[in-house]
């Protein structure tokens, strides 16, 4: 928790946080103004949520790239490692810190929600599920970013790694269309890619529907990447 708190306060003093906020608000503002906030449209955040992944997949890596990489590069990892905290505490602290910042980003979209509330009547259940979906997606994205950051002391490499991975998760639904042929194996790959796509699982949330399969997807992939990060942290100890 201490780590998380320090992480968040530190983030707020670093320029990258504001660049991330700027990009996020700009992207969300464009999507919102273009696709959601149109007179006569349904008052729902749905499309904002559906499209958010195309922005978040490059914004989140910016946010997470420094989490571990910077500690490695500056040598502060030595200080952290020799403090009486476990790797798990460290990981959890970093994760919570990043998640907290992500939730602050989400909090910024209250601007958009407020506009919707002024000019229409959004459905509260749906809005809740939209935010839940965004938070879960953010959780998964942050976990991926955290993993890559723990792998290298080079922030750029970490950012690129998570960008590619998140890009895959973001676009695999669309990419799956490109898969040629109709043999069994291709079909299998096709459906696997559809399953892996964030969009597949985000859609129900943005509709206002909770489904355990989507919940487990986001939680599961977050768990996988967090666990992999944990392994990386542990193995660093063993080199």
């Amino acid at each position: 928790m201490t780590i998380a708190k320090r992480e968040v306060t530190s983030l707020f003093f670093s320029p990258i946080a504001y660049i991330v906020m700027f990009l996020f608000l700009l992207y969300m503002g464009l999507v919102f103004a273009g696709l959601v906030f149109v007179p006569g449209q349904l008052t729902e955040l749905r499309r904002l949520v559906d499209f958010s992944r195309f922005g978040l997949f490059f914004i989140v890596p910016l946010m997470t790239m420094s989490l571990f990489s910077d500690e490695y590069r500056s040598g502060r990892i030595e200080m952290l490692r020799t403090s009486p905290i476990t790797e798990f505490d460290l990981l959890l602290g970093k994760f919570i810190g990043a998640m907290f910042f992500f939730l602050i980003l989400l909090g910024l979209t209250l601007i958009h929600l407020t506009l919707l509330m002024i000019f229409g009547h959004p459905d509260y259940g749906q809005t809740f599920s939209c935010y839940l979906g965004l938070a879960l997606m953010g959780m998964m994205f942050v976990s991926v970013g955290l993993f890559y950051s723990s792998c290298t002391q080079n922030q750029i490499v970490a950012a690129l790694g998570s960008l590619l991975t998140l890009g895959f998760f973001t676009f695999s639904g669309g990419l799956s269309e490109l898969i040629p042929g109709s043999t069994k194996i291709f079909e299998w790959i096709h459906s696997a890619m559809i399953y892996l796509s964030v969009g597949t699982h985000l859609e129900d949330f943005s509709k206002g529907v909770l489904d355990t399969s989507h919940l487990s997807y986001f939680l599961g992939f977050s768990a996988i990447f967090l666990f992999m990060t944990y392994l990386v942290l542990e193995s660093r100890k063993w080199r």
Binding site: G125, F128, D211, T212, Y217
Partner: peptide
Amino acid sequence: ILGFALYMTNTHKLHADLTSGGIY
């Protein structure tokens, strides 16, 4: 455990419609 959870949640989906109108 994860695989089992993913499998279970995909085959025995629990589904809740949060929209106030129950649109879905």
